[in-house]
């Protein structure tokens, strides 16, 4: 700050009388204004700059287009790689391999013999594999409900007995008509419960 003040001080000094510039005549027209080199240079620079800018912009635009298309391609490839590795994991999983091997008719290896390379001694007896070594593959995560089949057959039996009884009653009564299941002798509930249970894949109707 003090410096500013110090330099400003001479302005406050008493003014000197200004010297008046001497008057002179200027030409009405300036004939020559250089050889145009400067102008050319300016125009050239401007042009170069503009062209450079254009090229830069084009390059940028092109770059961003390439970037966009490459990113898109990368996404597609990424998804494909994901799908393929998923397929590999599925196909190489032990259960898929075992199922495929069995469907090709492959079985487990039979007993093997061994040759001791050092002594040339053979131990063990090798047997060829047979279909007895076939591996049965279990795919159901839980055993099939056994009770259902038993229950079904029991109910079937009960119904047969009921129908037979109804026939006997009808015969005794002298009517020739075949009795319908669900009437008199056969309790209606028996036939109603028969339907859902006789389906093999029905829900496990456990009795215990």
């Amino acid at each position: 700050m003090s410096q500013t003040i110090a330099t400003a001080r001479p302005l406050r000094a008493p003014r000197r009388v200004p010297s008046v510039a001497p008057l002179r005549v200027i030409p009405t027209r300036i004939g020559t204004s250089g050889n145009g080199a400067f102008g050319t240079l300016c125009i050239a620079l401007l042009t170069l700059g503009l062209v450079g800018l254009l090229l830069l912009n084009t390059a940028l635009a092109e770059g961003s287009l390439t970037l966009g298309s490459l990113q898109k391609e990368s996404r597609v490839l990424d998804a494909r790689a994901g799908a393929l590795s998923e397929q590999i994991a599925q196909a190489s999983s032990s259960n898929a391999l075992a199922a495929r091997a069995t469907s090709l008719g492959m079985v487990r290896a039979g007993q093997r013999g061994y040759i001791d390379l050092a002594s040339g001694k053979v131990s063990g007896t090798a047997y060829p594999a047979t279909t007895l070594q076939k591996v049965p593959i279990v795919v159901a995560p839980m055993p099939a409900p056994r009770v259902v089949t038993r229950l079904t057959s029991a109910l079937d039996g009960a119904t047969e007995a009921a129908v037979a009884a109804a026939r006997a009653v009808a015969r005794l009564a002298g009517t020739a008509a075949t009795p319908k299941v669900g009437e008199s002798a056969a309790p209606p509930s028996a036939t109603e419960t028969l339907d859902p249970i006789s389906k093999p894949a029905g829900s496990p109707a456990t009795t215990r």
């Binding site: 998923e86 994991a89 599925q90 190489s92 999983s93 032990s94 259960n95 898929a96 795919v139 995560p141």
Partner: peptide, 10 residues
């Protein structure tokens, strides 16, 4: 989430 071994290791 996928489990390639399925019920064998559930």
């Amino acid at each position: 989430r996928v489990y390639p071994l399925g019920m064998a290791l559930g």
